[in-house]
Amino acid sequence: MIKVKRSHELILLIFFLALMTIMSILAPSFLTVNNLLSVTQQMSELGILALGVTVIIITSGIDLSVGSIAGLTTIVIATMYGMTHNLAVAVIAGLVAGILCGAFNGVLIAKIGVPPILATLGTMTFFRGIALVISKGNAISDFPESYYFIGQGYIFDTLPVQTVIFVILALITAFLLSKTPWGRRVYSVGNNPVAAVFSGVKLDKVLLYVYIFGGLMAAISGWIISSRVSTARADLGAVYLMQSIAATVLGGTNIAGGSGTIIGTVIGVSVFAVLGNGLNLMGVSPFAQNLLMGVALILVLLINNMSIIKNKIVLFIKLNFK
């Protein structure tokens, strides 16, 4: 199993390096410090969302509501700011909203036992609905100048703030997963929930925190998005939903649970970001990005499952032509 995991990350890394090489040949402005920094900036929002999704998928769950949570967060921040004119309060309220959404998912999944895909299919619509009701379907752009720092600012005039946040959060998540009891329990639940419970793991508590974590990451992502585009809108996170799942799976997290790493997810997100940025520099239609993202995902998994495909063909030939 460990061998398989390593080989997946290796395939992905080779794929990624090949992609980087192709991009730097085709687009001369690609391999510059400034451009690479802007790539990291572009990947941060998706990346942060994917951190939460990775943890969730490791438990063999899924969260379709992360995009809606991000959107709701932007609305809560904007509305609270409109009411209090205190940015700190507004942002905290936004993050708390994200945590509450995650907890709501967690209760449905961990306490009631609804399959994650169905629970979050429902809450995806529900959370988006709440955001629409609060905002009456409008976009809100009433923010102070200082709000834009998170999504548009630079540290030392070079490092994009959101890149720094992404790196810090990725490190924290990696640490939580690999070094804390909670992380261990997350893997154990994904690997064999029955055995985990039989070893004294509190399944419902672990899952509850996992979905709260997913909600918090979605909220932080939403905060950065709204700061970058200077707007709050209910549908702001929606585009990232499927991408975050795709990037996580591309990064080697098994959709059936039990395995996956943050480094893998970061590479997965990077592949998408490099694709997007490189194609953009080459002047290729933005529509091609979608296409190539899908192709990349399928291609890597096909290579990963090569042995299964080979076995099937061999058996087929054995039975029919021998």
């Binding site: 091609a288 899908g294 096909l302």
Partner: peptide
């Protein structure tokens, strides 16, 4: 992709959703 290569349906269709839409828009 799902039956032959045994890639989980959700993963395949997240991928092809982008492939179909992307190629259509292109």
């Amino acid at each position: 992709l799902i039956a032959g290569a045994e890639i989980p349906a959700i993963v395949v269709t997240v991928g092809t959703m982008n492939v179909f839409r992307g190629s259509l828009l292109l």
